[in-house]
């Protein structure tokens, strides 16, 4: 066992231990009620991180209820505290945590809803990139050879559950009771020209095509992927959606 660190390092370590449930650290004084005054720090740390997590995963919070979410957040925070002051990067482990958290085993779609919210957070803060104009596609002589580079915000979340519909039904003002979707869904997340981050459930052919584009395949092979996933698939609709959203940022000949 290591000896306690001396000096300021030892002080900080003891204070931290006190924050997560240890007793009053040595040297802490107050005019009175030292324990209650120290507890302000304990509460501030737990409350501020819980709030930060709830802001990142509002649909998960709505699905489990606010009080449950807060209690669950304390468990998550103890296991996966932020590793950086940039809290917008925090929460990558939350979907996996939900998958292994027995009290939410009855909501098997919850980790996928969390993956959608995590992807939305990343898309919201993704790098800026200028969209190409529709003419870049329309003017091509051999479109199947074109390589489309998608905006850094574009992501796909595949779920064995209707996670995109569940997410949509748990937005502010939405009525979760009206949710009728069943079966697996593929969610497309991107940041559009208005800098908003919509979630769209894709048909299997659309999703296979977008996945192939994200993997760097040229339009021809990507369209083939769409047809393999969904016979007779027409790429026009999903390409039109990506173009309108400003999610195609480069069109070039495949190498």
């Amino acid at each position: 066992m290591l000896a306690p660190a001396e000096g300021h390092g030892g002080f900080v370590a003891a204070f931290r231990a006190g924050l997560v449930g240890g007793g009053l650290p040595e040297g802490v004084t107050a005019v009175a009620e030292a324990e209650q005054r120290f507890a302000v720090y304990r509460n501030n740390v737990a409350h501020s991180l819980t709030e930060a997590l709830a802001r990142r995963f509002p649909a998960v919070s709505r699905l489990v209820g606010d009080a449950f979410f807060r209690a669950m957040a304390r468990v998550f925070i103890a296991q996966h505290p932020p590793a950086s002051p940039v809290l917008l990067d925090w929460g990558a482990e939350f979907p996996g945590f939900l998958k292994g958290f027995p009290p939410v085993a009855g909501l098997p779609y919850l980790p996928d809803v969390a993956r959608i919210e995590r992807a939305r957070g990343l898309a919201y803060h993704a790098a800026d990139a200028v969209a190409v104009s529709p003419a870049a596609l329309a003017g091509a002589t051999s479109p199947e050879a074109l390589r489309l580079v998608l905006h850094p915000s574009v992501a796909l979340v595949a779920s064995a559950w209707p996670a995109a519909s569940i997410w949509a039904a748990n937005q502010p003002g939405a009525d979760a009771a009206g949710m009728r979707a069943q079966g697996p869904e593929l969610a497309l997340i991107l940041r559009d020209r208005a800098l908003e981050v919509p979630v769209r459930a894709l048909a299997p052919g659309d999703a296979a095509l977008v996945a192939a584009l994200l993997a760097g395949q040229a339009l021809g092979p990507a369209a083939l992927r769409g047809q393999l996933a969904e016979p007779g698939h027409d790429p026009a609709a999903v390409l039109g959606y990506l173009m309108a959203a400003g999610a195609i940022i480069e069109v070039g000949e495949a190498a």
Binding site: H8, F11, V12, A13, F15, R16, L19, G27, Y41, N44, V45, S48, L49, A52, P81, P82, A83, S84, P85, L87
Partner: peptide
């Protein structure tokens, strides 16, 4: 201070003045 041992605590925590 707000970080310790690689963890970020998201609060402005006090220090002794020495």
């Amino acid at each position: 201070w707000s970080s310790h041992g690689g963890d970020y605590l998201n609060d402005l925590l006090p220090l002794p003045y020495t």
